[in-house]
Simulated scan of single mutants.
Amino acid sequence: MSSTTSRSLARGRHEVSIEGTRQVFHIAGTGPVCLVHSGGPGIAWEYLRMPALEEHLTMVYLEPIGTGSSGRLDDRSDYRIDTYARFVHGVVEHLGAPTVFLLGHSHGGFVVQRYALDHPDRVAGAILYSTSPVTGEEFWADAMANIGRFPQRLPHRPAAREIPDAFQRALAAQDDEAYTTSLREILPAYFADYWAHEQDLAPLRAALNAWIDPMHGEEPAPFDVRDQLRSLDVPTLIISGVHDFFGGTRWARVAHEGITGSRLTVLENSGHMGHLEQPQEFTRAIIEFVRP
C-alpha cells in the first residue's frame, strides 16, 4: 500500500484504539509519511507543528498517550519509553504505509530510537531532534549545570535570572496545572535567546499545555542505547542546537559517532527548539535527508 494513498491518511484528526487505549493523531501535508513524536514526556503536541515540512511530507503528529485527547493508562508505571514505542507501532500499522520517516523531539527522540531498534524494517529514516542516546546521572547533571549558568549566558536579559528557581518549581510540580504554569515560566531556557523572538513566541508560551508524567521521568533503568545504536541500519539525521541546555551538542555527537552513516546538523543559533529559532536551516536539513 502506498504511503500516500491509504484511506487512513485523510487530513485532520484521527483516533485509533491501541491496547484498549485511545491514541489520537493529526495529519497534515502531502508527500512521504513522517510520524512526529513530541517531547516531555507530557507536553502537548502543538508546539511541534511544522507547516514548512507539510509542504513536502505527510506529517502525522501524535498526541502521546497521557496527553491531550489521547487516553490515559490504567497502570501509572506503564508510562515508559518502550510503551510509547509500542503505541508508535500501533499507529504505523494503522496507517498502512510500508515504511515511514520518524521525527522524535527530546523525549520523543528516545521513543524513536527505541522504535527504530525494534522495527528497523518499518523505518524509512529516523530524525533525532534535540535528543540523546542516553540519560542517567551524567545527562541530568549536565542539564542542571547549564540551567544554573543560564543567567550568566544572557546577562543582558534580566528575566533570565528567574529561570533556575522556576526550573526547580517545575521539577516539584505535583499536578497538571502547576506543571503547565511552571513550564510556561521556564520556556525561555529552551531557546538560545527567547527574548530576541518574544513577539513571535509569546502566543506559543501562553498556549502551552502539559500533563505531568506519572513516572516523573523515572524508568526502571536510565535510557541508554549507545551500544545498540552501533548496529542500527536505518538512515539517521541528528539535529542539535549549540545552546540546548540538555548538553548542547554533546549527546548529539555521541549518537552521531555511534550510528554508522548518520548525518549531523548543528544549529549554531538555537537551543532546544531549532524548528522555531532557525526554521529555514531546520527544514532544509530534513528535506535534503528525506529526498530520494
Rank of each mutant, 00 (worst) to 15 (best):
G247R: 06
F246S: 08
F110N: 12
T181H: 10
L57K: 04
R80C: 04
I81A: 01
E46P: 04
F289T: 08
G42Y: 05
L229Q: 04
S77G: 05
F282K: 03
A141Q: 14
L183Q: 13
D175Q: 13
A28H: 11
V290P: 02
V134A: 03
R161Y: 00
E218Y: 14
L57P: 08
T249P: 02
V134T: 09
V92R: 01
G68I: 15
L62Q: 06
P64M: 02
G248Y: 07
R169C: 07
W251M: 08
Q278I: 12
E198N: 08
T249Q: 01
V33G: 04
I18V: 15
V92Y: 02
I147V: 15
H105V: 03
Q199C: 03
R11G: 07
Y190Q: 10
E15M: 01
G271V: 12
A143E: 10
L204G: 00
G68F: 12
V60S: 01
R226Q: 07
V290N: 01
G136P: 13
S38N: 11
Q113S: 03
P203N: 04
I81C: 01
Y115D: 01
L95T: 07
E46F: 12
S262W: 09
L187M: 15
E46A: 13
W195G: 03
H119N: 10
H105K: 02
L204N: 03
G125R: 05
L95F: 06
P203Q: 10
A143G: 09
F150Y: 09
I259Q: 02
L264N: 05
G39H: 03
W45Y: 02
E219D: 08
M1T: 07
M215C: 13
F139K: 10
I239D: 03
A97N: 12
